[in-house]
């Protein structure tokens, strides 16, 4: 069980000169627990585990399909959370889900379940700051770092509020769009990273549209780290299994580690 908070853990690694790598894995999909172990073995600093939702409006076709398959396969929020508890992964785990899953369980119950399962963070892309205050207060009191997202369209004034209210890290959305692989890194990714870095000392991670080692390397030239979701989940859907996941994350690790400060 990690005893540092998500933010403390990521900040410590970042301050030691390391770039951060956070893969996203759809919970409840096939051999996802083994996949999480594999990406940790390959050097993930933390892992985002998705609790699938029926209507994922921030997700493109890959994660939509993964979510649908997982739900059809019987995945449930409590099932996924208790597997995380049982697995005791050893790096910080943040759950990524949509707000109805949290709201349906109830803030207090959801927060205490996360905490009981040794989970360090929450990422809820349809719960923007103005609606998030109650959940953040509840998460804070249960030791859960709620991560807020900032987008290329976010005005400066609001960036200040977001970096102030976020915990764990600030999630910079790399492009105007939904999750999914892209042929090249959007120029907005580095732009968002630059703006966020100028406004906070909290870790700045960029996700959405970071699809391969060279894109990850490009984005961490400015950002503190990269989040890679669809590119990994596609490999899960293709049945590449833990060994495929390990190989892919190892390549990403190598690419971002090659960048010397």
């Amino acid at each position: 069980m990690p005893n540092l908070s998500l933010e403390a853990s990521l900040t410590q690694s970042r301050d030691s000169g390391k770039k951060l790598l956070v893969p996203y894995v759809t919970g409840g999909l096939g051999d996802w627990v083994e996949i999480v172990h594999a990406v940790i073995d390959a050097g993930a600093d933390a892992v985002e585990v998705g609790i699938p939702f029926s209507d994922p409006i921030m997700d493109g076709p890959t994660i939509q399909e993964a979510s649908q398959r997982a739900i059809e396969g019987g995945a449930t929020p409590t099932g996924i959370l208790s597997e995380i508890k049982k697995a005791d992964f050893g790096v910080p785990i943040a759950v990524m889900t949509y707000y109805n899953i949290v709201y349906h369980a109830g803030h207090q119950r959801f927060a205490s379940t996360l905490s009981d399962c040794g989970i360090s963070g929450s990422i809820i892309p349809d719960l923007q700051l103005d609606e998030a205050r109650e959940w953040i207060a509840q998460a804070d009191s249960s030791g859960i770092d709620n991560v807020l997202l900032a987008a290329p369209s976010t005005p400066t004034q609001r960036i200040k509020a977001l970096v102030d209210a976020t915990r764990g890290f600030i999630y910079g959305v790399g492009l105007m769009g939904v999750t999914g692989e892209r042929a090249s890194l959007s120029s907005s990714s580095t732009e968002v990273a630059r703006v966020l870095k100028a406004h906070t000392t909290k870790p700045v991670l960029i996700g959405v549209g970071v699809s391969n080692p060279s894109q990850a390397e490009e984005v961490v030239r400015i950002a503190d780290g990269a989040i890679v979701g669809s590119a990994l989940v596609r490999r899960m859907l293709e049945g590449q299994g833990p060994s495929g996941a390990y190989a892919f994350i190892s390549e990403l690790r190598k690419a971002i580690d090659s960048l010397k400060p």
């Binding site: 609606e131 900032a150 959305v173």
Partner: peptide
């Protein structure tokens, strides 16, 4: 001002859509 009718309504959207 937060778009509520009693407890209902609000603005549960991705951050990207907030300015719009």
């Amino acid at each position: 001002s937060s778009g509520r009718f009693g407890d209902f309504g609000g603005r549960f959207v991705p951050e990207s859509l907030m300015p719009a």
